[in-house]
């Protein structure tokens, strides 16, 4: 029996460690991929964006791997530019959303009235279809870059806020928090020292996982015409313009940008999932 246990335990632990290592490797790979994408958005030669009717409407080739559009602009350059814009919009929107989620969920510590207000707001936002709220807010703000960022930021916090709120509630009710209160510590001190460090992994993963949503939603409202304006090199703009040319057989206008958008979203999603696996052993510090 003891032999069995001693054989089984180290095996289980090493398996767990291996899984964590793999998750870490994938996370690093994801970060590198994203860095390459964002970096190339900065560094890429914008010569390809110049209108060049001689090369208009050409199918993918070695000199234009994603083909060119009706103005002769290189679709690869446009796609990379579009993705990098999506990245920054997503980053800003997800960051603002994360901050909103954190602050609102921490109101639980202040008083009951504020907390029930927050809960009501969460339910309200989760009750309205996402895309409707997005279009409404973006439209109200007059669209454009800031309209989109704020619309995406204001619609993505509720899920994370609900998660964080549940976590805070659990910590708040634990005995060591009562002990801390009886040591005369304020709720502010407790939030800072006991609760925030505990929430950080959750918050970070929530933020990463919000990214793909933010990017897809930005692209979709832009596609629908409520988001970024047509001068911006956005993926949503590229896709909606491409719609008009699909019937003339220019499939590459939509296929490559669409695929690249999906790849970026998938990379973020897998990064979030793998990071969760990396952080998981810290949950509770129980070995």
């Amino acid at each position: 029996m003891t032999e069995l246990i001693s054989k089984y335990l180290p095996l289980k632990r090493s398996k767990k460690r291996n899984r964590r290592k793999r998750a870490l490797t994938f996370s690093v790979l994801g970060v590198i991929l994203l860095l390459i994408l964002v970096g190339s958005g900065f560094l890429i030669d914008t010569q390809g964006l110049v209108v060049n009717f001689d090369e208009a409407n050409s199918a993918p080739s070695w000199s234009h791997p994603f083909g060119t559009d009706w103005l002769g602009r290189d679709m690869f350059v446009r796609t990379v530019k579009g993705l990098s814009l999506s990245f920054w919009v997503g980053l800003l929107a997800a960051f603002i959303s994360g901050v909103i989620a954190l602050i609102l969920s921490l109101l639980l510590l202040v008083n009951k009235t504020l907390d029930s207000l927050v809960t009501g707001l969460i339910d309200l936002f989760l009750g309205v279809p996402h895309i409707v709220a997005l279009i409404l807010i973006s439209f109200m703000l007059g669209g454009g870059l800031y309209g989109v960022i704020i619309a995406v930021a204001l619609t993505h916090w509720p899920r994370l806020a609900r998660l964080l709120r549940a976590e805070i509630m659990q910590i708040k009710n634990s005995e060591y928090i009562s002990v801390s209160r009886h040591m005369g510590k304020s709720w502010f001190w407790i939030a800072q020292h006991h609760i925030l460090p505990h929430l950080m992994p959750q918050l970070f993963i929530g933020f990463i996982l919000m990214f793909p949503h933010a990017i897809l939603h930005e692209a979709s409202i832009t596609f629908l015409g409520f988001g970024l304006s047509s001068e911006q090199p956005a993926i949503g703009i590229i896709l909606s313009e491409a719609m008009g040319y699909l019937s003339s057989g220019m499939w590459w206008l939509a296929v490559f940008p669409g695929l690249m958008l999906l790849v970026m979203v998938a990379v973020f999603d897998s990064l979030g999932r793998n990071l969760r696996k990396v952080f998981d052993p810290f949950k509770g510090q129980k070995h």
Binding site: S174, E175, Y176, V179, H182, G184, H194, F282, Q285
Partner: peptide, 21 residues
């Protein structure tokens, strides 16, 4: 009390009264 409690309790289950992290 608004300040540190002059009455301090030592409980039966110390593991619950300490932040596990």
């Amino acid at each position: 009390f608004k300040r540190r409690n002059p009455v301090q309790l030592i409980g039966q289950h110390p593991e619950n009264t300490i932040n596990p992290r």
